[in-house]
Amino acid sequence: MERLLFDLSIAIERGKENETSPYPPDLKGKPGAYEFTSRLLEMNCPPDTILKQGMMPGMDRIGKKFADGIVFIPEILIAAKAMKAAMTLLKPYFDNGAVLRKGKVIIGTVAGDLHDIGKNIVCMVLEGAGWEVFDLGVDVTKEKFLASLNEHPESIICMSALLTTTMREMEKSVTTIKQAFPQTKIYLGGAPLTSDFADKIGADGYFPDPHSLSKHLTGNL
C-alpha cells in the first residue's frame, strides 16, 4: 500500500494522468494517477490517506520545484491535470464527509483585471494541498467576494491583480471585506505587488508564488 501511495505521488508529480495518456513518454502504457487511486480504493485504503499521503506530496513536490525555478508553468499544469483525474475518484468521499479538507478558500482576480493564469495555478496548488477552492474567476467585484463569503463565512480570501491600476481595486475590496468580516484572512498575489503594499492596504499578507502561500496557510491551521 505504501508503495502504491508513493507511486501515486510520483504519477502526480510527473503529470501521468492515466494509462492511455501519452505523457511522459517513458511511462507510456503504464498506470497513472487514476489507476493508482482506484487500486488504492479497491484495497480499502482510506480516502483521507490517499489524499494526504498520495496526492498532496506529489503536488507539494512539483509546487516546490516551481517556486525554486526548476520547473515551469506547463509542468504544474500537467501535474494538476493528473491530480484532477485522481480527485474525480475521491469526490464521493468529499461529499459524504469521509475526507475532510483543510478549509475553504475563495479566490479571484479583482475587478477590472482579466489576468487569470497565476490565479489558476494558485487554485491548482491549493486544491492539491487539500483545500476546497471556490474560484470566482476574473473581474471579481468586492460585492462578489462578499456574496461568496456570506455563503462560506469561514473561508480565507485570496486576491490577484496584474495591473497597477487594478491594485487600487484591491484596496477597496480589502476594506469592504474587513468591515463586514473583520476576522477573515485576506492574502494577495500578482506581479506588481509587495508585502509592503499588502500591509498598507490592510491585507494579511502577500505571497510571490503558490507554494509559499500554501505553506503559510497550512502552517496557520
Binding site: 525555478g69 515551469f72 506547463p74 497565476g118 506581479a191 510571490p208
Partner: peptide, 12 residues
C-alpha cells in the same frame, strides 16, 4: 516571461 521567470522551460 512572468514576474519570476520564463513561462515555459528552456527545453520547451
Amino acid at each position: 516571461g512572468s514576474q519570476h521567470d520564463i513561462l515555459v522551460s528552456p527545453a520547451l
